[in-house]
């Protein structure tokens, strides 16, 4: 399943994120490969979202947060001075825990990223890009006759797929998903999992999840995060998902996976 020969797109080195004076995560070293889905699992508050936000510089928007260490995207350190966080965010898409479509039409939601990033497109090209994104997000068939309807007229699961389509429309290389299915029912969850598998060849996908079975079902690699005694989140184990679930090296991983902690 997994392609270990695939190029490394994101590499995190000695990452530490501090909120005010509290160290949230420390000593994070991990890399993410193209055409693979990497799951990040761990108990609540261990810093999974914090790690995810450091990869597309969303932490910049939190005044109290300060980041040290390195995050390389295609070999470029995204925290170096001459890198524009706005550009990074257009190349590394993000989907949030709760569906957050804009209060626009379905079409305008998907077109938003293309418009703000100044893509010079004719009407037809714009339509085609929107359509491609909706097809990839497995939403096209359900909305193709009502692209002008308000996004809030969609169900929660459809809204979340709309958010995925919105992120895919700008052609990112990396897709970050922060517990994208916690607010959804099992059928919507299954749809999103299968769409992630169907698009993974073209992207580097990183998904945070609380759901062990979900990690086992969709991911090729899994990173387990755990707070240490000072409540600083660290990665305690990282490897191929099958190995992590069948043969964990760390005792805490075993306990966490079997539901004894977390």
């Amino acid at each position: 399943m997994s392609e270990s020969s695939a190029p490394e797109v994101v590499r995190v080195e000695a990452l530490r994120v501090v909120y005010g004076s509290k160290i949230a995560i420390d000593d994070i070293n991990i890399s993410f490969k193209r055409s693979n889905i990497t799951a990040i699992i761990g108990p609540s508050g261990c810093g999974k979202s914090t790690l995810l936000r450091s990869i597309n510089r969303m932490n910049d928007l939190i005044p109290a947060a300060s980041v040290s260490g390195r995050v390389y995207f295609n070999g470029v350190d995204i925290y170096s001075k001459d890198v524009d966080p706005v550009y990074i965010r257009s190349r590394i898409g993000m989907v949030f825990q709760r569906p957050n479509p804009f209060p626009f039409s379905i079409f305008d939601n998907v077109a938003f990223g293309l418009r703000v990033n100044g893509f010079k497109l004719t009407k037809d090209e714009l339509y085609n890009k929107v359509k491609d994104a909706l097809v990839k997000a497995a939403l096209w068939d359900e909305v193709k006759d009502r692209l002008d309807n308000h996004a809030y007229s969609l169900s929660g699961g459809q809204q979340q797929r709309l958010c995925i389509a919105r992120a895919l429309a700008v052609d990112p290389e990396v897709l970050l998903l922060d517990e994208p299915t916690v607010s959804l029912d099992p059928i919507s969850t299954a749809r999103i999992e299968s769409l992630l598998r169907s698009i993974k060849d073209e992207y580097t996908i990183i998904i945070v999840t609380h759901n062990m079975l979900q990690a086992a079902r969709v991911s090729d690699y899994t990173a387990v995060m755990m707070p240490d005694d000072d409540m600083v989140g660290r990665i305690i184990e990282f490897g191929e998902t099958r190995g992590i679930f069948t043969n964990p090296r760390d005792k805490r991983t075993e306990d966490y996976i079997s539901g004894r902690i977390g």
């Binding site: 969303m58 928007l61 706005v86 965010r89 949030f96 709760r98 209060p103 990223g113 703000v116 958010c163």
Partner: peptide, 27 residues
């Protein structure tokens, strides 16, 4: 205006000006 909407727009590569003009201000 819920922060969710701002974050969603920022995450797509919008500048603060674009977030304000296209998402926040109309509402």
């Amino acid at each position: 205006i819920p922060d969710d909407l701002r974050l969603g727009a920022y995450a797509l590569g919008a500048t603060t000006f674009q977030v304000v003009r296209r998402v926040v201000l109309p509402r």
